[in-house]
Simulated scan of single mutants.
Amino acid sequence: MRTATHPREILLGAQAAANMLPVCDHYSGVEVRMRKSLELQAQMLQEFGACVFDVTLDCEDGAAVGNEKAHARLVASLAKNSQAGCRVAARVHAVDHPAFEEDIATIVQEAGHKLSHIMLPKVDSVDDILRAERALERASGGHIPLHALIESPAAVHQAFEIAAHARVQSLSFGLMDFVSAHAGAIPGAAMGVQGQFVHPMVVRAKLEIAAACHAYGKVPSHCVVTEFRDAPALQVAASKACTELGYTRMWSIHPAQIRPILNAFAPATSEVQEAADILVAAAAQDWAPISYNGVLHDRASYRYYWQLLERAFLTAMALPQHARQWFDGNAA
């Protein structure tokens, strides 16, 4: 029996199997924007030495009605030819859409080896996950993780069951569809950057999704900020999602949103230094309890500080020299 030696395995146990995901998931569906998104991803890969955001090529909102087949072929081609080291995903149509099966077959059969995941919209229950899983297996994509978009009251009610499925890697909150699913009972202001953080039903849905993800070691991904020209508003929204609502990932719909999301989800430099110091001291004691600056630390706090270091890595922060050994050979 192999003995765990890496802090991730020692401290996180079963949850260590969950993949670390970049904190930003960038969406584009129009051809010129998809190409520019992939170019930007490649540029930032070179800049940071790691892939700091996903690009999700969008079939659901990107394909014109009647042009679904051609759009799926375009997405497959772009994904297939994406630069090595980049993370590229596809959002397909919902499982009850006529184009769903062909989306999966076209994209997975041509570019399955390059896909980081498939984003599945309009997920209401585990039955939708099972249907998508069968479609992936028919297309020889059984290895590809699923991300589920929670967009309705029924889906929020089923969030824990959906998150528990082994194929599901992340849950995202679909704010716009969630609000519109309430027949006017939630005002339109709740779709804005301010209203979505104060309306009780919207905040409740966000918290349910985050809690479901953390219960099963999955990644909660926060919804879009549609006011993409309002940089301060985006910064506030990303900070609230990260520090108040428990989200570890967020959607971007404009290139200008990517770096602010990275900055908002990155821990403070002083926190990273403290985390590294504590964990190095703990490792030297084989993870027994230690005293650091007069404060007792054990595995409970070690887990927190290790996850903080992982978030620093995922946001391309410079890690203290004595902690870099744990991340050598990894990529965000």
Rank of each mutant, 00 (worst) to 15 (best):
V198Y: 00
A300W: 05
P200L: 04
P200I: 01
I278Q: 04
L308V: 13
L171D: 09
Q273D: 12
V272D: 01
G184H: 11
Q285M: 12
M176H: 08
G188A: 12
V193E: 07
A190V: 02
C242E: 08
M176G: 13
A237M: 04
L308H: 05
A210M: 01
Y247E: 07
G188F: 05
N293C: 11
G188Y: 03
E244P: 02
I278N: 03
G188L: 06
A189D: 07
I290C: 06
I186P: 02
E271C: 07
L207Y: 00
P267A: 11
S301D: 10
A282L: 05
A281R: 14
L262E: 06
W306T: 11
E227M: 02
S291L: 13
A210L: 03
Y304C: 10
A266Q: 09
A268E: 15
A190C: 04
N263D: 15
L171Y: 05
A189R: 06
L279D: 02
W287K: 11
S180Y: 08
V272S: 06
G192I: 09
I258T: 09
L309S: 07
F265C: 12
M176K: 05
E208T: 08
P220A: 05
A215Q: 13
R259C: 01
P260K: 12
A284L: 12
Q196T: 12
G246W: 10
Q273P: 00
V295F: 03
